[in-house]
Every structure is written in structure tokens, then in C-alpha cells.
Design a protein around this nucleic acid. Structure first.
Lengths: 204, 204
DNA sequence: TAAAATACCGACTACTTGGTTTGTTGTTTT
DNA sequence: AAAACAACAAACCAAGTAGTCGGTATTTTA
């Protein structure tokens, strides 16, 4: 088993710097040599561990991206509190992280979703699956919120989930340009406003 | 002046098929030869009219994309009616067009915004300017709506505009994958719900 | 300790791409 | 009629790029 440790360590090194460069420059604009130069490794090492550039990228999705999405977007909304509060808090955290840390995984999804759209069905499948996981968890969280009296009975949970995801992906696209902080502030204000509208109406 | 006609015709031919291919396969994954093959033209013709691939793309942005954004997203919301109705109608039309016509320009913006982000400042400037034009028009439309009693006095027009743009860009990213029609339906429902919340409150 | 598997090196191939250059043809201009 | 020019054609170049392959050092195993 010890021999596998070295293998895993090298593969992991390749994956993390690979992801960083793919995120920064795009998949097609990042050559394998670029990654290897950063790691002081050779072509031989790369093709010993991965069978192709595409295979390499999929392994990154499976190992790094999916897990990050879980820890940043899914786990924080689990619990029995008001889901609308949990979700808005979670999204605000994600946006705030994105502001300070360029190598942010929420936007990564958005980035790659656009890059591979209609060009690489295999990779698109993984990206869509990851999005779907987020969506499913949002929906179930909202439904639980309905049951617990936090969310109005009449709202369409699937619709709300899609709307949340849409606006999040969109605002992440916008945030990279300029005034990320101001944008986040305005975005969160509108999101919370929207959430108040779908919250359970208290009889005055 | 007649000789200029031929020049313009050829350039326009190059630009339209260039845009179609850039949209379909991405800027970096589309070679100039790809475009020329489709047009039965040669490298010489291309570099006679344009000084580089980047210059070519910018000319496409200036001539085709910006105008399309105007006609699809800006002109439809001009007028003295309820801006919330105009905007939701306009966005629904844009999404519906996108469903049937793959080569849609609303998403194009989103697509390119992602592809050039942090990689090509010159092109990013043009894309951001185009977005800004849309935003400015949305804001002024909303403010007029406030003045005319369609929009609640307390809403932050800049915030609403950003939120609209965000959700639109996001939903266009999502729509390319699968069930575009269902997604559009759910999205429009939530957008209209959100709009009702920011509309002028009638005293019952 | 010899054999065998693991992990890696780096030169090489086959191919693509943006861009250059030189040449050709038809049309204006002088 | 000659020079000039617009609008292309096509061969060419240098710089990449994904992937291959024979070889090698280092562990593991028998």
C-alpha cells in the first residue's frame, strides 16, 4: 500500500496545479507542458499516470471540484434552521471567498460549463452532474423549509432552486470584471429581498 | 465608392461565419483556416482585410454583437409602459429565441465573457462595455418606472438591474444543456414573481 | 540478491496554428 | 498604354501541442 502513496501524491500534485492553471488560462489554452514545468516533472510522468489530457481533467473534476462544491455549497445548507437564511448565508460566503481567492470553485464550474459547452459531451456530463447535485440539495432544503413553516406553501421549489443557481452563476460571471464587492452587496440585497417574498407569510 | 462595396461584402461574410464558428467552438478552438474553408477563401484574403485574429474578433463585436444586443435587449424595453412588463417580455423573447436559434447573441456575450476573462483585456473591455450599455438602459428604464408609478419607490434600481443581468446570464448558461423550455418556464415564473415584489404597491 | 514492478526522463513524431511573403488577376487611374 | 492598386491565391515559416517510446533509476518482491 505504501507504494500507492507516492503515486497518489504525485497525481494529487498534478491535479491541484492543473486545476489552478486550467482555471486561470482555460483548458484549451493550458498545455500539459505548462503544468509540468511548474512541477518540474516530465511528459513521461504525466502519461504514466493519466491516459490523456481529457482523462486528467475528468479526474480533477471528480477529485477536487465535486468535493469543493459539496463543502462550499451543499454542506452549509444542511440543518433544520430556516433554509432561506442558510442559503443566503452560504451564497454570501461563497461570493466573499471568490472576492479574495481568485481560485474559487463556484465560479470554476461556471467557467468550465461555458468552455466545454457543446464541445466536449463527456466533460459536460460531469459538470452538469455536479450542478444537478447542488440543485437537488437546494430543492430538498426548500421543501423541508416548507414543511417547517419557513417557506410559503405556494412556492415552486424547483423554480426557486433554478433561479438561485442562475443568478449565482451570472453574478460570478460579472464579478470577475471590476467592483466585486459592490456587486456582491447589491446582489445579496436583491436575493434577500426575493427570499422575503417567498418566505412564509405571517398573519399580522 | 463601388469598390468599397466588395470590400465590405467580403468582410461581412467573414464576420458572420466567423461569429457563428467562434460561438460554436470558442475563439481559441476555431482556427482562421476553419473559417476560410467554409468561405472558400484564402489566408491572403483574410490578412488583407484584418491585421490579426484578435482584430478580426473585435470587428465582429463592434459590428454584429453590439447591434444585436441593442435590438434584442435594449430597444424592446424603451417606451412608456410598465418597464417590469417590458423587461420580462423582452427577456422571455430572448430566451425563446435562444431555444430555437443556437446562434443567439445574448448567450454569446456570456460565452465570450467567460472565455476571455482574465486572458484578453482588450476584448474584455468591449464585452464589458456592451454589458454596461445594457445595464445603464435597464437602470434608466426602472427609474422611469418609479417616476411613473409602476415601480416601488424604495427599490434600488442599480441592484435590480444587476440582479436581472445576473440571472439572465446564469439561466442562459444552464439552458444549453438540456430541457431549455422547462427551464425558461420556471425561470420566467420566478422572475415575474420577483417583479411583482418590487412593483408599486397598490393600496387595497 | 536477482528479478520485477513502479515511477519517471526527455527526445521525438505528427500535426496544428497564427502570421508572412510572394505572386497573380482584374480594375482604375494617369 | 503604362503604372498603380485592390483583392485575392497559395506556398511557406516558426512556434507551439498532444501523445509516443525507448531507456533508467528506485523500490518492492520472490
Amino acid at each position: 500500500m505504501e507504494k500507492n502513496l507516492k503515486r497518489m501524491a504525485t497525481m494529487h500534485r498534478m491535479q491541484t496545479t492543473g486545476l489552478a492553471l486550467f482555471y486561470k488560462n482555460g483548458f484549451y489554452k493550458t498545455s500539459i507542458d505548462d503544468i509540468l514545468k511548474e512541477l518540474d516533472l516530465s511528459k513521461g510522468a504525466f502519461y504514466y499516470h493519466f491516459k490523456s489530457k481529457e482523462d486528467f481533467f475528468i479526474s480533477i473534476l471528480e477529485n477536487l471540484v465535486v468535493r469543493k462544491v459539496y463543502s462550499m455549497l451543499i454542506e452549509p445548507i444542511e440543518g433544520h434552521d430556516n433554509p432561506l437564511d442558510l442559503i443566503s448565508k452560504c451564497i454570501e460566503d461563497a461570493l466573499q471567498t471568490a472576492e479574495h481567492n481568485q481560485n474559487d470553485y463556484g465560479f470554476l464550474l461556471n467557467n468550465f460549463l461555458n468552455e466545454f459547452n457543446g464541445r466536449n459531451p463527456e466533460i459536460m456530463k460531469y459538470l452538469n452532474d455536479t450542478l444537478k447535485i447542488w440543485e437537488v440539495n437546494l430543492v430538498s432544503s426548500l421543501k423541508k423549509g416548507k414543511f417547517n413553516g419557513y417557506v410559503d406553501r405556494h412556492v415552486d421549489c424547483e423554480g426557486v432552486a433554478s433561479y438561485i443557481i442562475s443568478s449565482f452563476l451570472g453574478v460570478r460571471t460579472l464579478m470577475v470584471e471590476g467592483s466585486a464587492t459592490a456587486l456582491r452587496y447589491r446582489y445579496m440585497q436583491q436575493l434577500r429581498f426575493y427570499f422575503r417574498a417567498i418566505a412564509h407569510k405571517q398573519v399580522a
